[in-house]
């Protein structure tokens, strides 16, 4: 079970959207999200939503996957809606019960904010659904590149992310093994209240941490013996290449963003 874990929510595919340069995708996402905050009418949201639908169609991601990605923000969405509906005042009175009242301005702002949050989450999840963690890491490394001059260790950060991704399955497997070994010795991970359960995790966490440190030590030696000496002078097996496609995508999203910002 633990072996088949997928990291992040990346859905492998070979669509136009999947094949865009990750740097471009990150830039476009940031741009579109900024533009989203300039939209001040539901008509603007409709246009944005249309863009999302086109991207989803092109990327061939099953829409259900995107809807599932909204689950974690459901609480935030409900909270925003309720707060606005009950506490934003103005416009016509719609409903009143004692000191609680709903006014039209509240209703409008509530739905307006909720739409914004939902579109925000959907658009960012388009990035993570169509870009593998590895590509994302590469993209972030290149985009942070200019900051190297002021001392941001961009390549090292990217290397750390890669290693973390590499070792997540390994450590999960190990946690599973330790858990079974401790259960065989009578450890109890399933009963008791939260405090007790947290305390019962100690026999799992201590060996896991010790082993993780040992692994880190081994890995550092192995990396050193394979000539790793930081990001300086390192080349890549796959160099990122920006093509015409990427510029078309960038052009389209610039036009779209300008429309949102100006109108």
């Amino acid at each position: 079970m633990l072996r088949n874990i997928t990291i992040g929510q990346y859905l492998a595919g070979n669509s136009v959207i999947h094949n865009l340069d990750p740097r471009m995708k990150i830039i476009i996402t940031i741009m579109m999200i900024t533009a989203l905050f300039f939209i001040d009418s539901f008509l603007g949201y409709a246009l944005f939503f249309l863009a999302v639908i086109i991207i989803v169609y092109l990327s061939r991601i099953p829409p259900i996957r995107i809807l599932r990605g909204l689950k974690p923000v459901l609480f935030l969405v409900m909270l925003t809606l309720i707060l606005h509906v009950f506490f934003t005042k103005g416009g016509d009175l719609i409903w009143r019960w004692g000191f609680i009242s709903i006014e039209s301005e509240g209703l409008y702002t509530g739905f307006f904010m909720v739409t914004r949050i939902l579109l925000l989450v959907v658009f960012t999840s388009l990035l993570t659904l169509t870009t593998s963690p590895l590509e994302l890491t590469d993209g972030i490394e290149y985009l942070l590149g200019p900051l190297k001059r002021i001392g941001v260790p961009a390549s090292e950060l990217a290397m750390m992310m890669t290693i973390a991704l590499r070792f997540i399955p390994t450590l999960l497997e190990e946690a599973d093994k330790i858990m079974k070994a401790q259960m065989a010795r009578g450890a109890d991970f399933e009963s008791g209240n939260i405090v007790k359960r947290a305390r019962n995790l100690i026999p799992l966490l201590v060996p896991l941490f010790i082993s993780a440190f040992r692994r880190a030590d081994d890995l550092a030696l192995a990396m050193e013996s394979r000539c790793y000496h930081g990001g300086e002078g390192r080349t890549r097996l796959y160099e990122l290449k920006i093509g015409i496609r990427d510029f078309i995508a960038l052009g389209l999203s610039i036009i779209l963003s300008l429309i949102f910002i100006i109108f």
């Binding site: 890669t162 991704l165 390994t170 040992r214 081994d218 890995l219 192995a222 394979r226």
Partner: peptide, 10 residues
């Protein structure tokens, strides 16, 4: 240890 000397995810 074969696990502790592989760096990348592929």
């Amino acid at each position: 240890n074969p696990d502790n000397q592989l760096v990348a995810t592929r």
